[in-house]
Design a protein around this nucleic acid. Sequence first.
DNA 1: CTACCGATTGACT
DNA 2: GTCAATCGGTAGA
Length: 212
Amino acid sequence: MVLDAYSTACRPLPRTFYDRDVVEVARELLGQYLLRSHEDGLVGGRIVEVEAYLGRDDPANHAYRGPTRRNASMFGPPGSAYVYAIHSRWCLNAVTEPPGVPSAVLIRAVEPLVGLELMQRRRRARAGSARHAEWPPTRDLARGPARLCEAFAIDRAFDGWDLTRGEQLWIAPGDTGAARFEIATSGRIGVTSAHDAPLRFYIADSPLVSKR
DNA sequence: CTACCGATTGACT
DNA sequence: GTCAATCGGTAGA
């Protein structure tokens, strides 16, 4: 029945999902669905690329030197969002492990599935008008952590948001049965320290990851 | 208050 | 592959 399928697909992952080792959560977030409801409409897609930021001894983590105003939500409960700005753009993380442990998973790329037109309108709105009508191509709508936030209308207002509420912004179970896809691993993108730590994970055969 | 820098992107060679 | 726009966060005077 359609409604059953819809409500199942939209039920948020529980807090226990996030209350585990950050690397474990990062790998298991691959294949789950990121959803965003808004008065303008619903957008959603499959998470295909993530990075883990460790709660201890990770110099690339924003919380490495202790709590600040910006990283406060990383110290909050598992299942919270940590949204930060870089170069005038927003990026989304899911906070993991018990409160006080500042670990989080950066969502780096989503395969757009629902609300493609709305995503494109939002992306074009920021980029301005001097562009070809086909821009951006569907595969680029949410490929990259800041593009994804643009397409999903995620900004500072969602810093600290409870992703387990199932409202406005949440993550729902996806197509994650064992052996559905292979997970590839690499160093994290863009970081200036701990560049080689194997903490980036992506769906191996996806053409939608932000870099190869 | 000022100075520096970045978990990025888009344009360009 | 290279490079700069652009601005919030942070550290330090």
